[in-house]
Design a protein around this nucleic acid. Structure first.
Length: 453
RNA sequence: GACCCUAUGGUCUAGCGGUUAGGACACCACCCUUUCACGGUGGUAGCCCGGGUUCGAUUCCCGGUAGGGUCGCCA
């Protein structure tokens, strides 16, 4: 058999479909994908659905959707969430639930050679007691000794009493059968690797290269469990993050281009990425930094994608932009460009364009909707009412001259006006907002607000 | 309890025996400004501790401490 190093790299992402796609899992997939693309190798997606009690097709769908959203295309693997559905690649099926014969044969082989034995209806593998050396591409050479519990009974179950194969067995058998050359996975598997190496030896083949990547921790340094909000890739998809921002950020956790750059396209990263450069220590997930990168990418979005994502965000919030003229929608969105980060923020930021002002920011109303401001806003409304051209420049001129006539600073009029028209204290340029809303709506909203003073 | 990995400002990191320890996010101040952002300028803040090795350790070795992982008929 050809040694793994002589072949084009074949890597895989092998999640178990028992819940959402974990952010750490997404990064593992990303690193595998990067390595495959960097080396011209193959990226395989394999679904490890051997835990029949906890697997679900819905979870498979979440994995496929998440990977596709991130732009991680796989060369081999399932095309749908259906375990018996279509797939691509010559080493299928890619669902372990469909590969039972392989496992059965492998177990039989071990049994017949005396390398495994039956115990209480299950099959256990005869694990060696001597320490096993693992040459890890990230961690270096690791000598794994037995723990005290393992020393008491080093053997482990590879097939349950109900005939179902266990993770350690299927993982190794599939990596072997699929010709996987590099196993890039979370560090939580490093201790398990001794068992996997022992199994490869039992099957008479050299183990693949291993690269155990550090884990992603919560901001406080604690373990990021499935329960933690922010642990799911779907959470970022739903909040309106851009896939390129999330992917870029994930790459910065445990890997660095080393030239002080932070924002890199996936193409640049693919070119520079390599496994030996992966850091050895865990990294905390910094939401603020992700947000910053998101802002960087959001600002340079082209118009078409910006409109599409914005309209989608409004729709998700229950605001139907389709009932407004397209030029109005575009003009409204143009005033928001570069002013917000995630699209999830957009409806709250600029929803006033697509619905009446329901309520005013309470604190601001208390401060701005006061008796002494009433004649001022009234005067401003009158000035706006006399405008023939209701565009930003004219509105700005009108506001400033009104302020001058009243002997107050522009801000004195700007704040209550913005609050009256948008209900918010912050938002797009006031003059442009008014222009987009139009004379009728603007005056009407100011009039309505005047009743609250 | 045992075994394994790790350790540069609050966070992500550059550094690979001699540096004023660099960058980014966050934070603070100021500027810009109709708000919020953006942008600009400046600033606070770091090599976990203790031993070695060395002329010299953030950097190499050992120990400690701390964090993380693993020891399932979960994956």
């Amino acid at each position: 058999m050809t040694h793994p190093s002589a072949m084009k790299p074949r890597v895989r992402f092998a999640p178990s479909p028992t819940g959402h796609l974990h952010i750490g899992g997404a990064r593992t997939a990303l690193f595998n994908w990067l390595y495959a693309r960097h080396t011209g190798g193959a990226f395989i997606l394999r679904i490890e659905d051997t835990d029949t009690a906890r697997n679900s097709q819905e979870a498979v769908k979440l994995i496929l959707d998440g990977l596709r959203w991130l732009g991680l295309d796989w060369d081999e693997g399932p095309l749908t969430a259906d375990a018996t559905g279509p797939s691509q690649g010559d080493f299928g099926p890619y669902f372990q639930s469909q590969r039972h014969a392989n496992y059965r044969n492998r177990v039989e082989a071990l049994l017949s050679r005396g390398l495994a034995y039956e115990h209480a209806g299950a099959v256990k593998f005869k694990m060696q007691r001597e320490p096993i050396a693992i040459n890890d591409l990230v961690a270096g050479q690791v000598i794994r000794k037995l723990t005290d519990r393992e020393a008491a009974d080093p053997d482990f179950v590879i097939m349950r009493s109900d005939g179902q194969p266990v993770f350690h067995l299927v993982n190794v058998v599939d990596d072997l059968d699929m010709g996987v050359t590099h196993v890039i996975r979370g560090e939580d598997h490093l201790s398990n690797t001794a068992r996997h190496v022992a199994l490869f030896r039992a099957f008479g083949v050299p183990p693949p290269h291993y690269a155990h990547i550090p884990l992603i921790l919560n901001a406080d340094g604690s373990k990021m469990s499935k329960r933690d909000k922010g642990a799911s890739l779907a959470a970022y998809m739903e909040q309106g993050f851009l896939a390129e921002a999330v992917a870029n950020y994930l790459c910065l956790l445990g890997w660095s281009p080393k030239d002080n750059r932070e924002k890199l396209s996936i193409e640049e990263i693919t070119e520079r990425f390599d496994v030996p450069q992966i850091l050895r220590h865990n990294a905390r997930f910094d939401y603020e930094k992700l947000l910053w990168l998101q802002g960087e990418y959001a600002r340079e979005l082209n118009d078409d994608r910006f409109y599409e994502l914005a309209v989608h965000a409004f729709a998700r919030a229950g605001l139907d932009t389709n009932s407004y003229p397209l030029p109005y929608v575009k003009a409204a969105l143009d005033t928001c460009k570069g002013k917000f980060k995630t699209f999830g923020e957009l409806p709250a930021y600029a929803g006033f364009y697509f619905r009446d002002v329901q309520d005013y920011n309470p604190e601001a109303a208390k401060k701005d909707f006061v008796p002494e401001n009433k004649p001022r806003v009234q005067a401003l409304r009158d000035a706006f009412g006399k405008l023939d051209k209701f565009d930003a420049a004219s509105l700005e001129t009108a506001l400033k001259s009104t302020a001058a006539a009243l002997g107050v600073k522009a801000g004195v009029l700007v704040h209550p006006c913005r609050l009256a028209v948008t209900g918010n204290v912050a938002g797009p340029s006031l003059y442009h907002s008014l222009e987009v809303l139009g004379k009728e709506k603007s005056l009407q909203r100011m009039g309505r607000a005047l009743e609250r003073f």
